[in-house]
Amino acid sequence: MTTKKTSANELNGIGRDVGRLVTMMTVAAWVFLGAGLILSMLNLHHFSDKNPSLMVGIGCMVGSVFIYVIRTAIHLVHSRAEAVTE
């Protein structure tokens, strides 16, 4: 004997569509990576922690990785939730 679980979203007919969020986060990650690379390459001549644009560029590159990891986690959780409900 199995029991069927339903959520409030399924009862209302409103599902969560995270496709746009995943796409937006992918674009944001690539934009931040590109901006970080440009900022870092333009100011590489003064390689020091006192160079603010170099530090911002490195921060953008690191931030883009975090954005992409969060995007991947959201996508995996959503696809897993869809697989369980089917």
Rank of each mutant, 00 (worst) to 15 (best):
L37T: 02
A73D: 06
D49G: 13
V69E: 03
R71Y: 02
V22Q: 01
T85K: 12
A29P: 04
I74D: 00
V22N: 00
V56H: 00
L39E: 01
N43I: 03
N12Y: 15
H75I: 06
V31H: 04
N51I: 11
V69L: 09
A29K: 01
G63S: 07
I58C: 03
I38T: 06
A83I: 09
W30E: 08
G13A: 06
H75M: 11
A28P: 08
W30V: 11
L76C: 08
R16Q: 12
G19K: 14
L42F: 13
G59Y: 05
L39H: 02
M41P: 04
D17Y: 13
V65E: 00
I58W: 02
I38D: 02
E82P: 01
V62K: 07
S79G: 01
N12V: 13
H78L: 05
G36C: 02
R71P: 01
V22G: 00
T26R: 06
H46N: 13
V31A: 07
E86I: 14
G59F: 07
S64P: 01
L39P: 00
S53T: 15
G59P: 02
N51Q: 15
I38C: 04
G36P: 00
H78I: 03
P52T: 09
F47S: 05
R80M: 11
V27R: 13
L42C: 11
G13I: 08
T72C: 07
V65Q: 00
H78C: 04
K50H: 13
F66H: 08
M24G: 12
V84N: 08
E82V: 12
M24Y: 12
R20G: 10
G57N: 05
S48D: 10
